[in-house]
Design a protein around this nucleic acid. Sequence first.
DNA 1: ATACTATTACGAAGGCGTTCGTAGCTCAAC
DNA 2: GTTGAGCTACGAACGCCTTCGTAATAGTAT
Lengths: 135, 135
Amino acid sequence: MPKRPFTRPAPPRPTNAELEILRVLWRRGPCTVRAVHASFERADPIGYTTVLKLLQIMTEKGLVRRDASLRSHVYSAAVSEASTQRRMVADLVKRAFGGSTLRLLLHALATRPATPREVYQIRRLLNHQKNGARA
Amino acid sequence: MPKRPFTRPAPPRPTNAELEILRVLWRRGPCTVRAVHASFERADPIGYTTVLKLLQIMTEKGLVRRDASLRSHVYSAAVSEASTQRRMVADLVKRAFGGSTLRLLLHALATRPATPREVYQIRRLLNHQKNGARA
DNA sequence: ATACTATTACGAAGGCGTTCGTAGCTCAAC
DNA sequence: GTTGAGCTACGAACGCCTTCGTAATAGTAT
């Protein structure tokens, strides 16, 4: 078998390093390895080839896309921030809240009491949803 | 140095296997290895000694406590479900939502539109919090 | 053309999580 | 006392994640 004809489904939760790289790509758009490496800010600095290797692996996993037409390959995120967040939240809900998103919500609200501004925003969202909510 | 004088702080997110075991202990209370193993329901069954090993490791990590006074040791959860959920949510917020719990909330609300009953519960919580909310 | 530099590719090491086989111990039954 | 069943302890294997060193390659400047 050759490489892989179709893109693998994205894993439920990217690893730490993968997330850090995705964050850079989401924020700055398509980047060379050097650019990604440069905009990495860490307690312990990370090697250039480490970033390269990660990007290569992430390409295989379908997390990023590579444009190899230039000498310095240009990488871009192949998964959106929103969809990644969705997957990660879904994973957390499944693993820690028995599949109940509501429980996650209540938990988050209870542990981190909202500021008035936050309360306002949540209320606004609830009002909007009231209409379009699917039972 | 001997074993470890004080309990290590619980890790931000228990692993999958650890969570599955904790779930059993939370649900059924203190259990022997055999009991934990018995109440495991999985697509692929898991070996008895695997559960044992996991419980031993979790003891070292401070996730469970062991009562070795009986021949069959009795294990119990050393971390509460609520605190574990708190840690896991905090970890997710940090890793995927740039530290903003609000963003997680809005995201969860947006992706999984609430049922009227859910909306009601959330509103109620918001009302309660309004008073006690720390700015 | 040659030497230097930037980049990619490859491989390997170390750590952690998960799994299980095997050995050794303890208690009870005979 | 000997045997057997059940339990714990230990260690090893395997895979994945992260890290980096080194080799190979392509482009640039002299």
